[in-house]
């Protein structure tokens, strides 16, 4: 048996740069209320959302990703050609094949990197980050572009008063690269397929094609069940991620949960007993729920506004349809 040479990359990996793209059109609750019987007060009290961005015809999954990626690459201070792999997490790219990652890789000028899409819902960023870290430590890629991108306005039932106000569009990207010190902790991740009905697409594409029902597929969820799982089960996962990184909540500077709902965020903070000094991402108010894009978008905004700074220690946790989840501790770029 031939001996295979062990693969070896950088000792550790870190996030080197982050970038985001928010569509030009800002949609306030008043616009949502044209199609549902509700109120601005009700929407704000249940979700904390005041406005969200919706993409226009030009702001495609590809276009938004390329914009966000360009910023992340510039922020990382690398050349596009240095990228060895592109991982795109999305559930709202309406073309099954080829993977949108290949086109994005080409358009950002990355040459011929490995490129593929993943489907991990609102945990997609953490899943992509974990893959990227593995590739870098393994030596399969020196720099990896991880993108979370969604056009959830395309998968929204605009007449459903329980979900019409929740979702937004956008893209967030990070460049992950080599590091001499640990800067991404072990990921605590998993899936709970027995709860696959909790958050789901209303009907499959095949059912829609065959004409029943007539309504276009949309994302629907069991609100109370999701809330309970997100707050109380995910708090345990977040705690495990802290332990995996060998730190406690006191060591944290920043908490960036998936931006699903302000009420979930507030309850998680309470359940986790996060100290006052921890900055909490509350991008949901002006961005809505952008699934895989929400964590990198929130990260970018915290750094841009100065609420967080480079070198800060952040706990990130994504959770959503699957159900799936991923939590880890990172050093901010």
């Amino acid at each position: 048996m031939a001996k295979i040479k062990p693969s070896k990359g950088a000792p550790y990996a870190r996030i080197l740069g982050v970038g985001g793209y928010r569509p030009t059109r800002v949609v306030p609750n008043e616009v949502i209320l044209e199609r549902i019987d509700s109120s601005d007060e009700w929407i704000r009290s249940r979700s904390g959302i005041a406005t969200r961005h919706w993409a226009d015809d030009q702001e495609t999954v590809t276009a938004m990703s390329v914009e966000a990626a360009g910023k992340a690459i510039a922020d990382a201070g690398i050349a596009p050609a240095d990228i060895g792999a592109v991982v795109v997490s999305t559930v709202s790219h309406f073309k099954q094949t080829p993977a949108v990652a290949t086109e994005i890789a080409h358009l950002v000028g990355a040459g011929k990197p490995a490129a593929f899409d993943i489907s991990a819902g609102c945990a997609g960023f953490g899943y992509g980050l974990t893959l990227a870290k593995g590739m870098i430590v393994d030596g399969s890629a020196e720099h990896v572009l991880v993108i979370g991108v969604e056009r959830l306005s395309d998968l929204t039932d605009h007449e459903d008063r329980a979900t019409a106000f929740l979702f937004g569009d956008g893209a967030g990207a990070v460049v992950v690269g080599p590091s001499d010190v640990p800067a991404i902790g072990r990921t605590v991740w998993g899936s709970e397929g027995d709860k696959s009905e909790t958050i789901k697409q209303t009907v499959s594409w095949a059912e829609y094609r065959d004409g029943h029902p007539e309504k276009f597929p949309a994302i629907t969820q069991e609100g109370q069940a999701v809330f309970r799982w997100a707050v109380f089960e995910m708090a345990k996962v977040a705690q495990q991620a802290l332990e995996a990184a060998g730190i406690t909540a006191d060591d944290l500077d920043v908490f960036i949960p998936h931006q699903a709902n302000m009420r979930i965020i507030d309850s998680m903070v309470k359940t986790l007993k996060l100290p006052e000094h921890v900055t909490v991402a509350r991008d949901i108010e002006t961005t809505g729920n952008t699934s895989a894009a929400s964590i990198p978008l929130a990260m970018e905004r915290l750094l841009a506004t100065g609420e967080a700074k480079s070198g800060d220690t952040a706990l990130v946790i994504g959770f959503g349809a699957g159900l799936v989840y991923a939590a880890t501790v990172v050093t901010l770029p």
Binding site: R46, G223, Q224, F227, V231, S267
Partner: peptide
Amino acid sequence: VDSLSMVEVVV
């Protein structure tokens, strides 16, 4: 007590 607070009460 709205539907989400009800979950907190229950837990």
